[in-house]
Write a protein that binds this DNA or RNA. Structure first.
Length: 257
DNA sequence: ATGGTCGTTGGACGA
C-alpha cells in the first residue's frame, strides 16, 4: 500500500503534474493540501479518468484539502468537528478498512510575533486533542500533510541562520513534539536518516533544488501499528523539476498491510 | 538568501 502527501499549491493549476505523477507512481492514497478550489469546482472527473475517487473540502483562493484514492473510503471526516465547520479546509480524514488517514494543512504562521503564529501553535494542541478523542494509540493511524514545520536541524538547509524563523522555531518544535509524544513515529525519518532531504523549495530562490536550499516540512507519521508495517519512505523530487511545478514535492511511504 | 515567484484574482495577499 502506497500513501503519498503533496502540497499541490492549487489542484487546478497542478492538474498536468498530478496526472503525470499519478500515472507514473500509482499511489493508493494521495493526500493533497492547498487545493485552493471550492467544492463545486473540484476536478472530480479528471481524477476519475486517472482512476481515482476524490473526497475534499475547499474554499475560494486559500487552503483546501483532499484525499484521492483508488478505492472509495468507508468514511470521511472534515475538520475538527467532523462536519467541516471548524477547519474543514485544513483537515480531512478517512477510514478505509482498518486504516485511518488524517491529512492536515497546518497554518503557516506568517511571523513568530504574529497572532497567526499563536494560532498555529494552538492548532497543534487541537489536533493532539483530536487524536486523543477520536483515535486509539493501538489504531493503524497515518498522519500526513504539510505540517509547516521542519522538526530537526537536518531538515533545513541552514539551521543556524533559520532557527527562530517560521517553520523552524523552538516553539513550533515544542508544539509538534508534544503531538508526537501522543504516539507517532516520523516514518520518513525512520527509513532515511540522512539530512538534505527536502519537500519544499521557495519559488523565489533561484535553482533552489539544485542548490539544496529546501525545507522538510511535509511529513508522513504513523502510530506503531502503521510504522511497524512501513517498508520504505521517500521524497520524490522529480515533480518539483517539471514544468509548472508546485513549490512542494510529494512525500511517500509504502506499507506492507 | 529574504531581494528574487507563484496562484488566485482582478489589487493585494498569502506562502
Amino acid at each position: 500500500m502506497l500513501i503519498a502527501s503533496f502540497n499541490c499549491n492549487s489542484v487546478r493549476a497542478r492538474m498536468p503534474v498530478l496526472k503525470r505523477w499519478l500515472a507514473d507512481t500509482s499511489p493508493d492514497f494521495l493526500c493533497l493540501q492547498e487545493t485552493k478550489v471550492v467544492d463545486g469546482d473540484f476536478p472530480v472527473d479528471e481524477f476519475l479518468e486517472s482512476g481515482y475517487n476524490s473526497v475534499f473540502m475547499g474554499e475560494k483562493s486559500y487552503n483546501g484539502v483532499a484525499i484521492i484514492s483508488k478505492t472509495k473510503p468507508d468514511s470521511v471526516f472534515h475538520g475538527f468537528d467532523g462536519k467541516g465547520s471548524d477547519e474543514g479546509t485544513r483537515l480531512i480524514a478517512v477510514k478505509s478498512g482498518k486504516i485511518n488517514i488524517v491529512n492536515t494543512y497546518i497554518p503557516q504562521g506568517t511571523a513568530p510575533d504574529s497572532e497567526k503564529f499563536q494560532y498555529k501553535l494552538h492548532w497543534f494542541e487541537r489536533i493532539k486533542e483530536l487524536f486523543d478523542s477520536r483515535y486509539k494509540k493501538s489504531d493503524i493511524l497515518i498522519w500526513v500533510g504539510d505540517f509547516n514545520v521542519a522538526p530537526e536541524p537536518i531538515d533545513v538547509h541552514n539551521p543556524k541562520r533559520l532557527l527562530g524563523s517560521v517553520g523552524y522555531h523552538p516553539e513550533e518544535h515544542r508544539a509538534l513534539a508534544s503531538v508526537k509524544e501522543w504516539g507517532f513515529t516520523d516514518i520518513f525519518r525512520k527509513h532515511t536518516p540522512d539530512g538534505g532531504n527536502y519537500s519544499f523549495w521557495d519559488y523565489r530562490v533561484k535553482d533552489g533544488v539544485a542548490r539544496g536550499l529546501g525545507w522538510r516540512v511535509d511529513h508522513i507519521w504513523g502510530t506503531s501499528k502503521a510504522s511497524d508495517k512501513s517498508v520504505r519512505s521517500w521524497i520524490d523530487v522529480e515533480p518539483r523539476l517539471w514544468e509548472k511545478p508546485s513549490d512542494h514535492t510529494p512525500i511517500l511511504a509504502e506499507f506492507n498491510f
